[in-house]
Write a protein that binds this DNA or RNA. Sequence first.
DNA 1: TTTACATTTTGAACACTGTTCAATATATTT
DNA 2: AAATATATTGAACAGTGTTCAAAATGTAAA
Lengths: 196, 196
Amino acid sequence: MNKKEIQEQRVKGYFITATKDLLKSEGLKSVSVRNIADRAGYSFATLYNYFKDVKDLVFLCVKDFREECREYVDTRTTTVTPGNKRLKAIILAYMEYFIQYPGIFDLFFAEKLSDISGKGDTSTLITSLLEELCAADWDYCIDMRMLTSREAGLKKAALLYGTTGLLTLYLNRRHPGSYDAFFKQATHFIDSQLKS
Amino acid sequence: MNKKEIQEQRVKGYFITATKDLLKSEGLKSVSVRNIADRAGYSFATLYNYFKDVKDLVFLCVKDFREECREYVDTRTTTVTPGNKRLKAIILAYMEYFIQYPGIFDLFFAEKLSDISGKGDTSTLITSLLEELCAADWDYCIDMRMLTSREAGLKKAALLYGTTGLLTLYLNRRHPGSYDAFFKQATHFIDSQLKS
DNA sequence: TTTACATTTTGAACACTGTTCAATATATTT
DNA sequence: AAATATATTGAACAGTGTTCAAAATGTAAA
């Protein structure tokens, strides 16, 4: 029924919102079935009527966070000069977003997906985010004959791997040891990669 | 006393060996206080007479794995021509080691350190491994005037970030989707970074 | 309105996790 | 052999995810 569908989606939304709030404020380690249900105003058992397990619920947040990150980056890079300059700004803002919400980084890149089957698209959702954010400016550079399509492909990959690694090392291993040092390393890395 | 010290180190060793075996065979998720103690032939409570908590014990394994990785890489790269060629071989072997033991990668780069205080050197132990493996060949390239010291520093950092990110994405997000594709990406990335 | 059925919500229970602590067992010394 | 010191241990507690039968609620029919 339609009414039933609407209500189901509503309750699902309560759980998702609770999970997102918890993840952003307390981090991934505090995301538990009982904590989520408390925030949503339901019993922990109710959660299992709407999601097959807690990982399923947690990974449903990826879509929303992806959009949030997109907006975060867009609002602070639209006025920047297209091309290399904006690419740098986009990548820095992208990293900044995860620095601000380490729990979201954990969810995106560290948390293991439970079942490998149908969740391939969640992985794609995550790994394609940076590429999507940069797409227009890579195209711009290619159109301007600053880069070949082949070169752009290599740089895209290197920047995805590098930013992921740098964030992993900084958030999980405090390397570099301060935010200033991290930021300096990030800019150096991006500059070195964008340099033709 | 000396006798006491020897016995204490021996029992500690039993727990560390058990943890290492478990980590390599079953992965980090199976490393629990009771599983470790079972393998070591003690009660789970005994563990707390030798280590302040389970994370302390788990991170003590880093030192041994570091040595193991070092040997793994050394034995398959000593005969390679020094310079860029050997650098590539070293970095590939380094990645290969973690592909073989995903649990060790989790321990090195994903697992959060419990207390931030005295464990800074464990982080350093981890983040300096690749640099140490490559040190001789970077020096070789600098001596041969193939690189300036400054350029080498940039490349070192980029390769550390890139390998960490590529391994994170492949092991946690199946990106790229197959080992063949992963290997191809890894070689492309390394080649592009080593290219002056 | 009351009865009957369908759906949603829920807490108890189970198997796990890490950790603490008092009791037990072992080793050492007197 | 008795007294003391040390090592080992299981019970207990608070937390985790998950299942399931019972209770509460909503809906339809009599």
